[in-house]
């Protein structure tokens, strides 16, 4: 039986690892050397956040599961990440816009989580908030460059936005698992993030000459373990060694 704190921590960890994994797919293939290094930096930040969060989740669960057990030995229905992060990396416009949408949410989120009554979560958040500030600035600058760059870059960015927008609603969902933790001062209420996120999006989209889509129907399910077709392929890659050589130490 998963406790709410375990599930909550796992959701944060899975978001970070899956997005970090997607960013790491760019390594060696970036549009320019400087950006190759920047994408790897952001991937490393997210993988680092995931490692800390998995260790904490394992400790909360108390059954001796390590960070690697949690990352490498769960199948799709046990993953708790939002659908946004598991979308395939797409082109650079897609990758950088997703990073912006995510960082614009996670930066203020970690700011608040650093005051969590769970001291470990608070400490992880305090470290991660600095990283997300960089992701937000870097990705936001690129969104502006692409939106106000060439005709092609603006078209690609617009296309990416149409693909990604329906996946942003899941960031703001609150279910029973989280409600009690929010009331206890452990988890962050995403409703409090909404106005900050809106302001960041509007500001950057304004500079990027990008029209904000209407909030219509939104995709949902990842946080409950209902995933897209893409997560299984990601896990096939991620977990290949651990599944092929069970029990080995690396």
């Amino acid at each position: 039986m998963e406790t709410p704190l375990f599930t909550y921590t796992l959701r944060l960890a899975d978001n970070a690892l899956v997005l970090g994994h997607r960013l790491s797919e760019w390594c060696g293939h970036g549009p320019m050397l400087e950006e190759d290094l920047a994408l790897a930096n952001m991937a490393l930040d997210l993988i680092g956040q995931a490692r800390n969060l998995y260790s904490h989740a394992g400790a909360i669960e108390g059954q001796g599961r390590s960070e690697d057990d949690l990352a490498y030995l769960r199948d799709c229905p046990d993953w708790r990440n939002i659908l946004l992060v598991e979308r395939p990396r797409g082109d650079f416009a897609f990758t950088i816009l997703r990073q912006f949408l995510y960082a614009a949410f996670m930066h203020p989120y970690f700011e608040r989580l650093s005051a969590s009554k769970d001291e470990t979560l608070a400490a992880i958040a305090a470290k991660s908030v600095k990283e997300m500030a960089y992701h937000l600035r870097h990705a936001g600058e690129w969104v502006i460059r692409l939106g106000d760059g060439t005709e092609e870059s603006a078209a690609r960015l617009k296309e990416a936005l149409e693909d990604l927008w329906p996946f942003t609603g899941e960031m703001f969902e609150v279910d029973g698992v989280e409600r009690a933790l929010i009331d206890a001062g452990i988890a962050v209420d995403p409703a409090a993030i909404r106005p900050v996120w809106d302001a960041t999006i509007d500001h950057v989209f304004g500079e990027a000459l990008l029209a904000r889509p209407r909030d219509g129907w939104m995709q949902t399910g990842g946080r409950r373990g209902e995933h897209s077709e893409h997560l299984g392929h990601l896990l096939a890659d991620l977990q290949f060694m651990q599944r092929t050589y069970p029990g080995a130490t690396w």
Partner: peptide, 20 residues
């Protein structure tokens, strides 16, 4: 993307980044 542990994954990514 296939490194066998999170520690190895982070170290390998950092290494390849160093090469860049």
């Amino acid at each position: 993307t296939r490194a066998p542990s999170l520690k190895r994954k982070a170290a390998l990514l950092a290494k390849v980044q160093d090469e860049g």
